[in-house]
Simulated assay, not measured.
Amino acid sequence: MKLSIPDADVLWAGLPDRRKHELTLTVEPGDLDDLNHVNNTVYLAWCERVARAHALREGMGTGALVALGAVPVARQHVITYHKPALLGDRVRVRTALTQHAGVRSVRAYTLDRATEGGTDGERLAECQTEWVWVDPVSGRPRRAPREVLDAFGFQGR
């Protein structure tokens, strides 16, 4: 799959709840770089954090995936940065599983400045990660188990 970042907001609205998750985080001093804004690597860590929280919410944490015989391994990240996040900012991080085909899945992420009223704030960044499903013992690619697809609302695939 060649990744390009689609309009993540349209994707978010049209997907079932089981395929999406969000967290609101606060920028802390350790998140900042020498320019006093959130370091690029922190955005990626936040994306991984919301993805893990989503997987745990659906009962598909690492232990469950290992038991099923397939774990996702990142193949490619594409991040577009729009505005910097600063110390004390609240950031809403959303993820949505947008595609699944064979041994690959794609997660989209949006990172927005959180607002008091819960409405969309300024877009800080967008990200997509392509994941490849692999056998945790052999490391060889394998299809995601049916239980995983069902847990995340990919029924009928």
Rank of each mutant, 00 (worst) to 15 (best):
G69Q: 10
V132P: 12
R92E: 06
R143Y: 01
H100I: 15
W133T: 07
L65K: 00
L97T: 06
R146F: 06
P136M: 07
V93Q: 05
G88W: 08
A67D: 13
E126S: 12
I79W: 04
E147I: 05
A108Y: 03
R140L: 09
T98W: 13
P72Y: 06
L149N: 03
R107C: 05
R104M: 13
R113D: 09
T119S: 03
R146S: 02
A101M: 12
R140K: 13
E126R: 03
D89Q: 13
A64I: 01
L68M: 12
V71K: 10
E122S: 15
A125K: 11
R123S: 05
T80M: 09
E147L: 03
A85W: 06
W133I: 14
V91F: 11
Y109L: 08
D120K: 05
R90N: 05
T110L: 03
G117A: 13
R140A: 01
R75Y: 00
E126H: 01
L86I: 01
F152Q: 14
A70K: 14
G69N: 11
E130A: 05
H77T: 00
V106D: 14
E116G: 11
T95D: 01
H82R: 15
G117S: 10
T119M: 01
A151Y: 05
A64K: 07
A108R: 10
R75C: 01
A125C: 10
A101H: 13
A70V: 04
V73W: 03
A144V: 02
V106K: 13
R75A: 03
D112E: 10
A96D: 06
S105Y: 04
G156L: 02
F152Y: 15
G63S: 08
H82P: 02
L86G: 00
Y109G: 02
R157C: 09
L68D: 11
H82G: 05
G117V: 05
Q99L: 12
L149K: 08
G102H: 07
A151T: 11
A96M: 09
H100Q: 15
V132N: 02
Q155A: 06
H100F: 14
G102P: 04
V78H: 02
V93I: 08
R92A: 04
V73S: 11
V93F: 02
G63E: 10
H100K: 15
T115V: 06
Y109M: 09
G153S: 07
V134F: 09
L86K: 10
A85P: 04
R142M: 12
D120N: 02
H77D: 02
D89F: 11
A74K: 06
F152H: 15
H82I: 09
K83Y: 04
A74D: 07
T95R: 02
E122G: 13
R113P: 09
V93E: 01
D150G: 04
Q128P: 04
E116S: 15
L111T: 08
L87I: 07
R143T: 08
L149Y: 03
T119I: 00
R104I: 03
V106A: 09
G102S: 06
A64R: 07
R143F: 00
